[in-house]
Design a protein around this nucleic acid. Structure first.
Lengths: 224, 224
DNA sequence: CGATAGCTTGAGAGTACTCAAAGTGGGTGG
DNA sequence: CCACCCACTTTGAGTACTCTCAAGCTATCG
């Protein structure tokens, strides 16, 4: 999951479960903190997240980290480049995954429908990453956090009457490393949003969006 | 072209010219400033840059701009998502392009080799964009500009004995919008690099890299 | 119940930004 | 062919946002 440009009426960015009628491979499970793959590993499988949340990260030599994406249900992770993984990937929660052989993407393995679905997922990924560039390069801290919460609310939020409830399985520093901020700035920005009654923080991992329109406005750069 | 993490011995990121033995479509040409496609256009063709440089951009409602990538010879541009383009694309120089039907990517059109080459290009694109995230989110102004110059030097620079010559067809504000900076900061950072004798600025569009190792060090975060 | 990791808050510093003005160079029209 | 013009670039001064460093707080786990 990337932070695409939030809209009033977004398209669902999740994709439907893929099925491999020919040879459905057994589901994989991960516990929180365990790794699915590391940067540099040869790619044997791609995975569609069935439930739970993954974290994809890259590290710089001096320890600086960038969270590349969070993998939510419906997302495909593990696209190879030159046959190897280019991020680390670990689980933030219990995660269930549907594996697909790398060959299903790269030569179809006789299942044209699956091949095409994986290709379309890769193309969607490119487009979503382009949106994310805009956010990393051009948005302020409050715009970034507002965008992040809007996208999560739309994608995996639950309804609470007029409000909306969002669970954040990741830590503040994961959010910071995803948005290109520090944990302190993320924390301060959460506090700002709370004080302006746009959100309420039920607990560290649960946010209630009290004024979705104001949040959306913030994410698009309205002064406030 | 994205700013991937520069290394002492990088792999060539350009890819070889693709050929469509079945039905080679006539080359397309663009003059500087003319558009190849706009965001929202239906995708009919993908293009491989044969010569010249393209600029791919996205705009925010309030006018903020992000340059998503520069398209250099060997690069493929125009990957569709949901069938449409997600950036604007125009030419910075005279550009020659080899078009490929969108169908060549999406169903092979009977040319498996071409289909696979386009798929691999899309996968390389995903990986390169992941590297670029790190730069947008986690690098300082001088690290960003140093990384940018290193990648260009490697990819399209020409040798000058111990030095290396790089032509920059884009404006300072293009560089700024690519790196997530302002034109003033880009200009000041060029001046810093010049004053520390790491580069010389022959003219606005021509940079000579005098101390490649120092530049590489800067790009990786060495203080100085 | 205490230890610890993660989160929040505070104070101060630094980087990059904004606004402003001067400098430069390419292109056009006289 | 030259001069002017305009767009782009550079430089300067001041500001603001985010970061750094530090300390206090909170929740979870043993």
């Amino acid at each position: 999951m990337y932070v695409t440009i939030p809209t009033e009426n977004p398209l669902p960015s999740a994709i439907s479960p893929l099925t491999s009628p020919q040879q459905q491979v057994a589901e994989t499970r991960l516990k929180p903190g365990s790794y699915l793959y590391y940067e540099g590993d040869n790619v044997e499988w791609l995975y569609q997240v069935t439930s739970g949340v993954l974290r994809l990260t890259r590290l710089l030599a001096d320890g600086r980290r960038q969270v590349i994406a969070f993998g939510y249900p419906g997302d495909i992770v593990g696209f190879p480049s030159a046959g190897v993984h280019h991020t680390d990937c670990d689980a933030l929660t219990n995660v269930r995954l549907q594996p697909f052989r790398r060959a299903a993407l790269e030569n179809g393995e006789g299942d044209l429908e699956l091949h095409n679905a994986l290709l379309q997922a890769a193309l969607r990924e490119i487009s979503a990453m382009q949106d994310h560039f805009m956010m990393l390069g051009r948005k302020s801290a409050s715009e970034k956090l507002a965008s992040f919460l809007c996208v999560l609310a739309e994608r995996v939020g639950t309804d609470l009457g007029t409000y909306r409830n969002v669970t954040l399985p990741m830590s503040r520093s994961d959010i910071a490393d995803f948005l290109g901020l520090t944990t302190e700035t993320v924390s301060r920005t959460f506090t700002q949003l709370r004080k302006s009654k746009i959100i309420a923080i039920e607990n560290i991992h649960t946010v209630i969006i009290q004024r979705p329109t104001a949040l959306l406005g913030l994410s698009l750069g309205d002064r406030g």
